[in-house]
């Protein structure tokens, strides 16, 4: 009887040593991996300086309607009459008719302000994030149109599907309290 008691106590002690050991390892992992500065979460965003407008943002997102949309940094815009983000290279005329527009959904809105300037705005409900306008504006214009993850739509997957297929590693994680990388506010070089 006494022997069995001893056996039980020994087993219990070994159990607690093992538990304490594994618990300590887990605690050490948490301490080693976590940032000291803040406990906040990270969200996905596109660095517009790295984006090559490959068009995968439109199709790779796990949501049916991609969380990536075109935004317009209007402080950078040249208000061009011939906007390379708005008109197709072979546009028959320089007006708002659908056949002249690059945007497949008509989400880029062109509004006359004063000669010779036009204002361009994005209708986010229509935008699919294909980046065709961004390509034109970046390559030939001021680059004021660019793609961003819209956080009212994004569900913040742990592993962003678009980030995984992004050919230029333009997807980065940013703190949740500063969730946009607005091109007009960023330093030019990456």
């Amino acid at each position: 009887m006494k022997n069995e008691d001893k056996d039980l106590t020994r087993r219990k002690t070994i159990g607690w040593i093992l538990r304490a050991g594994i618990g300590a390892v887990i605690a050490a992992i948490v301490v080693k991996t976590s940032r000291r500065s803040s406990g906040g979460r990270l969200v996905w965003q596109i660095d517009p300086r790295k984006c090559i407008q490959c068009g995968k943002c439109e199709t790779a997102c796990v949501l049916q309607q991609s969380a990536v949309k075109c935004v317009h940094g209007i402080q950078m815009c040249g208000y061009c009459k011939l906007c390379f983000g708005y008109f197709k290279p072979d546009a028959p005329r320089l007006d708002e008719a659908a056949e002249n527009q690059i945007c497949p959904t008509g989400a880029l809105i062109r509004k006359f302000i004063e000669p010779p300037y036009f204002e361009y705005t994005v209708d986010e409900d229509l935008c699919t994030g294909c980046g065709l306008c961004v390509k034109g504006c970046t390559n030939f214009g001021n680059g004021s149109l660019y793609l961003q993850v819209r956080h009212d739509i994004c569900v913040n997957c742990n592993a962003c599907r678009i980030a995984e297929v992004c050919p230029s590693d333009a997807f980065v994680q940013v703190p949740e309290n500063d969730p946009y990388l607005l091109k007009e506010l960023l330093p030019r070089e990456t």
């Binding site: 956080h151 994004c154 949740e176 969730p179």
Partner: peptide, 17 residues
């Protein structure tokens, strides 16, 4: 601009957790 046009910036919605 001469016509008194003022550009208004796009709003950027914050993540909702």
């Amino acid at each position: 601009f001469d016509s008194g046009y003022v550009a208004h910036k796009m709003p950027h919605p914050a993540p909702d957790f």
